[in-house]
Design a binder for these strands. Structure first.
Length: 121
DNA sequence: ATCCTGACCCAAG
DNA sequence: GCTTGGGCCAGGA
């Protein structure tokens, strides 16, 4: 993927619709979740600077194909929100990263990612 | 403008 | 553990 100078990126963002900026912020937050850790939709939204936009994180994830570690985003309490096969795949992917489950939920005490507070933009 | 929908969330019962 | 109802917000029809 082409990088672009910081200036170009900034200019593109200014021109972009608000929803694009939001999604970019979501993606940025999600990319910061390391292997073996997870964050909730709400935490991603808040970390990105958009509290109350948890549903939109899900919407963005749904559209965005493959480019993100989507399996690391779960529902509150560590619940997997995807249904059927997709849900199983997410669980499998997480377990492959070493994430342990307690029943149907991710062991959040052990695997929840804490976003650093100083990463605004 | 209205109505519906969603990989959500939370408090109740 | 459930199930329900309400709140939340933007996008699409």
């Amino acid at each position: 993927m082409k990088r672009g100078t910081r200036r170009e990126v900034e200019r593109r963002l200014l021109r972009a619709p608000k929803s694009e900026q939001r999604d970019a912020a979501f993606r940025k937050a999600i990319r910061q979740i390391p292997r073996g850790k997870v964050a909730t939709y709400g935490q991603v939204a808040a970390a990105a600077g958009y509290p109350l936009y948890h549903r939109h994180v899900a919407a963005m994830l749904r559209r965005s194909g493959g480019t993100l570690p989507w399996q690391r985003v779960v529902g509150s309490g560590g619940q997997i929100k995807l249904k059927y096969e997709a849900g199983l795949e997410q669980r499998t992917r997480l377990e492959l990263e070493g994430v342990r489950f307690i029943g149907k939920r991710v062991d959040m005490a052990e695997h929840q990612h804490r976003f650093r507070v100083w990463e605004f933009d």
